[in-house]
């Protein structure tokens, strides 16, 4: 066995994993260890595996992932803050043969864009919504988000989120699961290999639903914002498991099989 060298292993026939070509070569602008990059990658892997790059239109939000179109090698539109589901609605209705998804953070989807989110879900638009929930406004420097946990510190809740003063965190994923228009609603994460595999499977299912014209799929990804939380990436993932997951439990919330 000692006779096997690295050169023997590093041969094209032995290649089992490489970065998908559906990501551009551009270095992603996200902080080290941020779950955005992982989620971008697995969405693009799903599109590649389904062979639908040429038919997919992505909608980027405002927030950290405003530049998602720099990294995803597909046609994309950049939406005004919170309006991505309205854009996706129009694109899908005008070009029903295309695949359409939005990629949105918690501020975009669950605060300023609540109306667009609820109504696109309630109309049952045949689109995929990917929702990154890291409990904070990352782009603008770590302010309180609609999903910031009770007592969690942020730059606009420096002593922790006091729900009496600042209101409750919004479990919008549970909320949209109540709507008749949603087909598949799930909450996943990307902090471990197993979690990434499950999330990718969920995203695949979401796009397969769209392919079959079955309706709206909503995939929440609970993610870390280690910069905003002021931790290292691995500490942030541990904190997420201990604090975020009890409040935002992982797993399928709604699966309609018809």
């Amino acid at each position: 066995m000692d006779t096997v060298t690295k050169d023997d292993i590093r041969k094209p026939e032995n290649l089992i994993y490489k970065r998908t070509n559906l990501l551009t070569d551009k270095t992603m602008s996200y902080c080290p260890g941020c779950g955005h990059g992982t989620t971008h990658r697995i969405i693009m892997e799903v599109l590649e595996e389904m062979g639908i790059q040429e038919k997919t239109i992505g909608i980027a939000p405002v927030g950290c992932s405003v530049l998602a179109y720099e990294f995803m090698n597909i046609d994309m539109q950049q939406a005004a803050h919170g309006r991505a589901p309205a854009l996706a609605t129009a694109v899908k209705r005008l070009m029903p043969e295309k695949f359409v998804f939005t990629y949105q953070g918690d501020g975009d989807l669950a605060a300023i864009g609540t109306a667009e989110t609820i109504h696109a879900c309630n109309r049952g638009e045949n689109i995929v919504i990917i929702f990154i929930n890291n409990g904070i406004y990352g782009m603008t420097g770590g302010q309180m988000a609609p999903t910031t946990l009770p007592n969690m510190k942020s730059s606009t809740s420096p002593y922790g989120r006091d729900v009496k003063l600042m209101g409750n965190p919004l479990k919008i994923t549970e909320l949209v699961a109540q709507l008749p228009g949603t087909l598949y609603v799930t909450r996943q994460a990307v902090h471990t290999p197993a979690a990434v595999r499950r999330t990718k499977k969920a995203i695949r299912k979401a796009f397969e639903n769209q392919k079959l014209n079955k309706g709206l799929s909503f995939v929440e990804v609970v993610s870390n914002c280690n910069s905003g939380w002021k931790m290292t990436p691995n500490q942030a993932n541990e904190w997420m498991v201990e604090n975020m997951f009890p409040f935002y439990p992982l797993g399928d919330i709604k699966v309609n099989e018809d």
């Binding site: 041969k11 290649l15 941020c34 779950g35 990059g37």
Partner: peptide, 13 residues
């Protein structure tokens, strides 16, 4: 799979 920046290529023999 967990690398956020997709910088790792994997071979297996």
């Amino acid at each position: 799979i967990v690398c956020p920046d997709g910088v790792i290529t994997v071979y297996r023999k």
